[in-house]
Structures are given as C-alpha cells and as structure tokens.
Computed example of a mutant assay.
Amino acid sequence: MPEEANIQRPEGHILTELCQRVAAHYQRRGTMDRDFVTALPWLSFVRIPEPTVLNRGMLQPSMCIVLQGRKKMLIGDNVTEYGPGSYSLAAVDMPVSGQVTQASESAPYYGVRIDLDSKEIADLIVSLQITLPEKQHEASNAGAWVTQSDEALQEAFLRLVKLLDTPDDLPVLSKLIKQEILYRLVTAPAGSAFWKQTLAWTQGKGIGEALAWIKRHFAEPLKIDELAKRVGMSSSSLHHRFKALTVMSPLQYQKQIRLLEARRLLLSGSLDVANVAWLVGYESPSQFNREYRRSFGAAPLQDVETLRQMGVTL
C-alpha cells in the first residue's frame, strides 16, 4: 500500500515562501517549461501543471524536495506517495517509476532539485568528522528512498533560492549553503545509509564499481562471475549486495539501462526499432519488443508516439 501524505499545497510559512519564489522565477523568465535550470548548474526547479502517467526512468544521484502537489514513486516493490516537505534522495543511479498524482494549472506541482556528487559528500564527512546518526531510517537499505524534511533543511533551501536574486554573492555563499544542505542530509535519520553508500561509491570498489561498469558496458553480454572477479567479490555476495542496494539483480539493472537508452534513441527519431534493439545489446528484435512492452506498457513505436503527443522531448 502507498504511504499517504494528504497534502497538496505547501504547509508552513517556509515551504509557502519557497514555492512562491520558485514560481516567480518561472514568471520572470516567461517560461512554462517543465525544467528550469538556474545559474547554479547543480540546482534546478520542476514545474508540472497536470497529473502525469506512471513513467519509468533513471534517477541519478540527487535529492528533490516537493513544494506543492503530490507525487508517487515506485522503487522495486515499494510504492510511496508524498507531498510538500517530503523529498526523494538517491545515492546511486536507480531505475525507478515516478508519477505526479496531483497538479493543476492553478496549483502546479513544484519541486527543487539538487544534483549530488559522491566525492563532495565524502570530503565533507571526512573533513567535518561527522558522526553517524543513531536513529536508523526504516527504508534506507535501498539506493533511493523518500523521507520528510525538517524546518532546518527547508530554511537552507529558502536561503539558497533567495541567493539567486543576488548573482554577485553566488560564487561564495552558494557553496556554503550547499555544504549545509549536504550536512543536514547526512545527519538526518536516513543519513547513516546515505553515508555508507556514498563512501562505498567513492572507494571505487565492490558494488559502486559494478554499477559503473554496467553503465559503461550495458550493450555487452553480462557474465556475473566475470563481473564479480573484476570488482573483487564473490558471485553470491555481488548478487546479494547489488540487489539490496538497487532492488534488482545486476542483469535486471542492465536490462533497465538498455531499455531506457532504447527509448531515448527511438524518441530522437533517427533509427528504426531493429537498429535500436541491436545498438543497446539485443540480438533478437522480438525479444526486445517483448521486454520493451513489459517495461513501458506499449510496443516501442506506440510508446514513442504517445510520448511525443505528451510533448516529451530528449
């Protein structure tokens, strides 16, 4: 059953002001585009004026706090529905399904996203000698989860968004506020798992190295024994720890990357289905079609046509 958070509009003065300031950025630029890239390359806004269909994609290391509206996220078999003040946090690249469930033209879904850098977080943890939080988050074993923000984290985001109005201050003060946000993410109840996953990733061994190898070589045949040897693990340990982090096996993870890349290539319109299937690693177009339909709910060309009608672009 989905976790409930029966909130649509911002609750609390901090979230209300934060939402108003994000909306004002869209108005000043005169754009109603979904994504708004700010003057800080790692900070962006999201605006969605209507509910969306459940869509599968790759969630990169990031955190995104909801300011207004409601969203649903499917991570493995875990479905979470959440609203203002909650945020999604991904420590590694994770195939997930997401859907905006409540939004309208008069009250759009608004979110603020920060891209995360594992090395930056690890350096912060080491330099500040941050200790692990004693309280453990019940859903923090996977590489991505949803949790609730506190006022201190919300207030840091508000100061960061306000800072965009004083460009001369950005080079210095934005770094300090980002460090504060990272500190609050690490010391939150889910911070212990976030810390462990971040440090494991920067060490370049084990699961982090396996994830990186699969991403680089997704079109190649994947042999678990060879991958385990490459990253210095046993096959059983690799399979167990990989599934604990990504909620899927290495082969399932590779398949999701292949299908997402195939969808991107098809949406570009430059290749036909058979060539796309071959490029992403399938030898059988019929198998590709079956697995594509199973993942996205429609045959490749039908799915891409639907995306184009919805205005989805690369």
Results as ranks from 00 to 15, higher is better:
41 P>N: 09
86 S>T: 09
185 L>W: 03
30 G>R: 11
25 H>Q: 15
299 A>K: 12
172 V>N: 08
62 S>G: 07
149 S>W: 01
227 L>Y: 01
147 T>P: 07
174 S>V: 08
24 A>C: 06
33 D>S: 13
252 Q>G: 15
34 R>F: 11
258 R>Y: 01
246 T>M: 12
95 P>A: 05
297 G>T: 06
43 L>W: 00
240 H>S: 15
49 P>R: 07
284 S>C: 09
211 L>R: 01
295 S>M: 14
102 Q>V: 14
67 L>C: 00
77 D>M: 15
188 A>H: 11
168 D>R: 15
185 L>P: 03
222 L>P: 04
251 L>G: 03
31 T>W: 07
110 Y>T: 02
233 M>G: 05
250 P>R: 08
69 G>Q: 04
128 L>V: 11
224 I>R: 06
280 V>R: 01
124 L>A: 04
45 F>I: 03
150 D>Y: 08
197 Q>V: 07
95 P>Q: 03
10 P>Y: 02
50 E>K: 12
286 S>T: 14
205 K>N: 10
61 P>T: 09
312 V>F: 03
63 M>T: 11
78 N>E: 15
116 L>M: 14
156 A>D: 09
53 V>Q: 11
11 E>L: 14
84 P>N: 06
55 N>M: 13
137 H>N: 12
156 A>V: 14
201 W>I: 10
156 A>M: 08
150 D>C: 02
171 P>L: 12
288 F>W: 02
232 G>E: 07
8 Q>A: 12
160 L>F: 01
27 Q>A: 14
227 L>W: 05
106 S>F: 10
239 H>E: 11
218 F>L: 09
83 G>P: 05
29 R>H: 13
57 G>Q: 13
31 T>S: 14
183 Y>P: 01
217 H>N: 15
85 G>R: 02
101 T>M: 08
268 S>L: 15
1 M>H: 11
215 K>P: 07
292 Y>P: 03
166 T>Y: 11
283 E>N: 10
263 R>L: 05
74 L>C: 12
224 I>G: 04
154 Q>T: 08
154 Q>H: 07
215 K>I: 13
241 R>T: 06
159 R>W: 09
80 T>C: 13
171 P>R: 09
122 A>G: 03
123 D>W: 02
168 D>M: 14
284 S>Y: 00
46 V>R: 05
304 V>K: 07
199 L>E: 05
176 L>G: 06
309 Q>D: 12
193 A>K: 04
311 G>F: 06
182 L>E: 04
31 T>H: 08
154 Q>A: 14
153 L>V: 07
237 S>I: 09
96 V>R: 04
77 D>G: 12
274 A>Q: 14
143 G>M: 00
283 E>H: 12
54 L>G: 00
161 V>D: 08
137 H>L: 13
154 Q>V: 10
280 V>L: 01
220 E>H: 10
284 S>G: 03
139 A>I: 13
161 V>F: 01
119 K>V: 14
173 L>E: 13
307 L>E: 02
146 V>S: 04
13 H>C: 12
165 D>V: 06
3 E>Y: 12
311 G>N: 05
136 Q>V: 15
